[in-house]
Deep mutational scan, measured.
Amino acid sequence: QRITLKDYAMRFGQTKTAKDLGVYQSAINKAIHAGRKIFLTINADGSVYAEEVKDGEVKPFPS
């Protein structure tokens, strides 16, 4: 399943989102408010992988 960072954070909370991605909650808040195009893939085992689309390139998040 693929979902935006904002939607994932709204569904699970910023604290869990940060923990799942290995970053601080403040980084999640800042990324959402900056309007960054970050998409999360939720794997069947429950693990989460995030990618950011920037300038036409897709890069892992966090980099």
Rank of each mutant, 00 (worst) to 15 (best):
Gln1Ile: 14
Val23Leu: 09
Ile28Met: 04
Glu57Cys: 12
Met10Ala: 14
Val48Tyr: 04
Phe12Met: 06
Arg36Gly: 04
Lys54Ile: 15
Tyr49Gly: 06
Lys54Ala: 13
Ile38Gln: 00
Ser47Trp: 06
Asp7Asn: 07
Gly56Lys: 08
Asp55Trp: 09
Asn43His: 10
Leu40Trp: 00
Arg36Glu: 04
Pro60Ala: 08
Ile42Trp: 07
Lys19Trp: 09
Glu57Arg: 12
Ala34Thr: 12
Gly22Lys: 09
Ala27Ile: 15
Gln1Arg: 08
Ala18Gly: 05
Leu5Asn: 00
Ala34Ser: 13
Val48Leu: 08
Tyr24Met: 14
Ser26Ala: 11
Leu21Ile: 08
Arg36Leu: 11
Asn29Ala: 15
His33Trp: 12
Gly46Tyr: 05
Ala27Phe: 14
Glu52Tyr: 04
Ala27Tyr: 15
Ala44Cys: 09
Ile42Gln: 06
Ser63Leu: 12
Ile32Lys: 01
Gly56Leu: 06
His33Phe: 12
Asp20Tyr: 04
Val23Lys: 02
Leu40Gly: 00
Asp55Ile: 05
Ala34Leu: 10
Lys6Thr: 09
Arg2Leu: 10
Thr41Ala: 06
Tyr8Met: 01
Ala31Val: 07
Gln25Lys: 14
Asp55Thr: 05
Lys19Leu: 12
Ser63Pro: 11
Thr41Ser: 08
Glu52His: 03
Asp7Pro: 00
Lys30His: 15
Gln25Ala: 14
Tyr49Arg: 10
Asp45Ile: 04
Ser26Val: 10
Asp55Val: 05
Tyr49Asn: 09
Gly35Ile: 03
Lys54Ser: 13
Lys59Val: 15
Gly35Val: 04
Gln1Val: 15
Thr41Gly: 05
Ala9Val: 15
Ala44His: 09
His33Ile: 14
Asp20Ile: 10
Lys37Gly: 07
Lys59Asn: 09
Ala18Met: 04
Ile28His: 00
Ile3Leu: 13
Val58Met: 09
Tyr24Trp: 12
Ser26Pro: 08
Val53Tyr: 14
Leu21Tyr: 00
Ile3Thr: 08
Asp45Asn: 08
Val58Gln: 06
Val58Phe: 10
Tyr8Trp: 04
Asn29Thr: 14
Met10Phe: 10
Gln14Asp: 10
Glu57Ile: 13
Ala44Asp: 12
Ile38Pro: 00
Ser63Tyr: 12
Phe39Asp: 03
Phe39Gln: 03
Asn29Ile: 14
Ser26Thr: 11
Leu40Met: 09
Gln25Gly: 09
Phe39Glu: 04
Lys59Leu: 13
Gln25Glu: 15
Asn43Ile: 07
Ala18Arg: 02
Tyr49Phe: 13
Thr4Ala: 13
Ile3Tyr: 15
Lys54Asp: 12
Asp7Ala: 09
Thr41Leu: 09
Met10Ser: 12
His33Gly: 10
Arg11Gln: 12
Phe12Asn: 06
Lys16Asn: 05
Lys37Pro: 11
Ile3Cys: 09
Ala9Ile: 14
Thr41Asn: 10
Val58His: 08
Lys59Arg: 13
Leu40Ile: 15
Glu57Phe: 12
Ser63Phe: 09
Tyr8Ala: 03
Ala50Thr: 02
His33Tyr: 13
Thr17Trp: 02
Lys37Tyr: 09
Ser47Cys: 07
Gln25Phe: 09
Arg11Ser: 07
Ile3Val: 12
Pro62Phe: 04
Asp45Cys: 05
Ile38Lys: 00
Ala9Lys: 06
Thr41His: 08
Gln14Ala: 15
Lys54Tyr: 12
Gly56Ile: 04
Gln14Arg: 12
Thr41Met: 12
Leu40Ala: 03
Ile42Ser: 04
Thr17Asn: 01
Leu40Lys: 00
Ile42Cys: 06
Leu40Glu: 00
Thr17Tyr: 01
Arg11Asn: 07
Arg11Thr: 10
Phe39Ile: 07
Ser26Trp: 15
Gly35Asp: 13
Asp45Arg: 04
Leu21Asp: 00
Lys16Tyr: 02
Val23Asn: 02
Arg36Pro: 01
Pro60Glu: 06
Arg36His: 06
Tyr24Asp: 15
Ser63Glu: 12
Lys54Leu: 15
Gly22Asp: 06
Leu5Phe: 01
Glu57Asp: 11
Tyr49Ile: 11
Phe61Lys: 02
Lys59Cys: 11
Ala50Tyr: 02
Val23Asp: 02
Ile28Pro: 00
Pro60Met: 07
Gly13Ser: 04
Ala9Met: 12
Leu40Pro: 00
Gly56Thr: 07
Phe12Glu: 05
Leu21Gly: 01
Ile28Tyr: 01
Ala44Glu: 13
Val53Trp: 14
Val48Asp: 00
Ile38Met: 01
Asp20Val: 11
Ser47Thr: 13
Ala44Lys: 10
Val48Trp: 03
Gly56Met: 07
Gly13Asp: 02
Thr4Arg: 07
Gly56Asp: 09
Pro60Cys: 07
Lys54Pro: 02
Ile28Val: 10
Phe61Arg: 02
Thr15His: 14
Ala31His: 03
Tyr24Leu: 13
Gly13Trp: 02
Gln25Cys: 09
Lys19Val: 10
Gly22Glu: 04
Ser26Phe: 10
Tyr8Cys: 02
Ala44Phe: 09
Glu52Thr: 03
Val53Arg: 06
Thr17Asp: 01
Ala27Ser: 11
Thr41Glu: 06
Thr17Leu: 06
Ala31Lys: 01
Phe61Trp: 15
Phe12Trp: 12
Ala44Trp: 09
Glu51Cys: 10
Glu52Pro: 01
Glu52Met: 03
His33Glu: 14
Glu57Tyr: 12
Asp55Met: 08
Leu21Trp: 01
Ser47Gly: 08
Ser63Val: 10
Ala9Ser: 08
Lys37Ser: 13
Ala50Phe: 03
Lys16Thr: 05
Gly56Trp: 05
Ala27Asn: 07
Lys30Leu: 12
Lys16Ile: 05
Gln25His: 09
Thr4His: 09
Glu51Asp: 07
Gln1Tyr: 13
Lys30Glu: 15
Ile32Ala: 02
Gly56Asn: 10
Ser47Pro: 03
His33Val: 13
Glu57Gly: 10
Ile28Phe: 03
Glu51Trp: 06
Asn43Trp: 10
Tyr8Phe: 05
Lys30Asn: 14
Tyr49His: 10
Glu51Lys: 05
Ile32Cys: 03
Val23Gln: 03
Val48Gly: 01
Val53Asn: 08
His33Met: 15
Gly46Cys: 06
Pro60Tyr: 05
Ala44Arg: 04
Arg2Met: 09
Asp7Ser: 07
Glu51Val: 12
Glu57Pro: 03
Ile32Met: 07
Asp55Cys: 10
Asn43Asp: 08
Phe61Ala: 02
Lys30Met: 12
Lys37Glu: 10
Gly13Ala: 01
Lys6Trp: 09
Asp45Ala: 05
Arg11Gly: 04
Val58Ile: 14
Ala44Ile: 11
Asp7Val: 06
Gly46Pro: 00
Phe61Asn: 02
Gln1Lys: 10
Ala34Cys: 11
Glu57Trp: 10
Pro62Cys: 05
Ala31Gly: 03
Lys6Ala: 14
Val53Lys: 06
Glu52Trp: 04
Ala44Thr: 11
Leu21Thr: 03
Asp55Ser: 08
